[in-house]
Amino acid sequence: MKALQKIHSRFVPLPMENIDTDQIIPARFLKATTREGFGKNLFRDWRYINNDESMPKKDFALNQPQYTGEILVAGKNFGCGSSREHAAWSLLDYGFNAVVSSFFADIFKNNALNNGVLPVTVSDNFLQEIFQQGNESTLTINVEAQTITIDTTGASSHFEINPYKKTCLLNGYDDIDFLLSKKELISEFEKSTKE
């Protein structure tokens, strides 16, 4: 996992609630056995008419050239439904390094963090404020300070992140390395519970 300290970028707005992982990456694209290449199918059925790449849906944000950047801003309860980590992989592969919403589903949040995609939870009001910005405006996300700032207005908001996860993200560490270092402790735990 690569380290993530700061993101300064324009954003893509998706002001819809309850965006589930079946929309982020439909099941028919889950047949790959690697983690790469999911970006082209991100939001597939919202992006194209009849699944046809030559017919992009013009009113969908990902198809509108004025919207670009490493940050996706979405309505509340983002990432609900299926536990597929492919959702996080497809966002990352497409080029998103952070998702901003007022509420995230649990499993998605974990999956995102495990892949270095930062879920930023803000208040409903702050979220609306972001949606009201023009497409030229940028956001700055500072992981160390745990702040997200709307650069044009200077409005800033604090976000929560578990201190352990924050260290992982800032340094690009991952949980598996950590757990591998605990093997002895885990073996002892097993012995102690097997009476």
């Binding site: 983690r35 649990d106 999956n111 757990l179 885990i186």
Partner: peptide
């Protein structure tokens, strides 16, 4: 509970996952 693929890898590697108590 359901987990993502990174967590499947954690269980493979250590028979454990990292979880915050709900």
């Amino acid at each position: 509970f359901g987990i993502g693929t990174s967590e499947v890898e954690m269980v493979f590697a250590s028979q454990c996952v990292l979880q915050t108590k709900p």
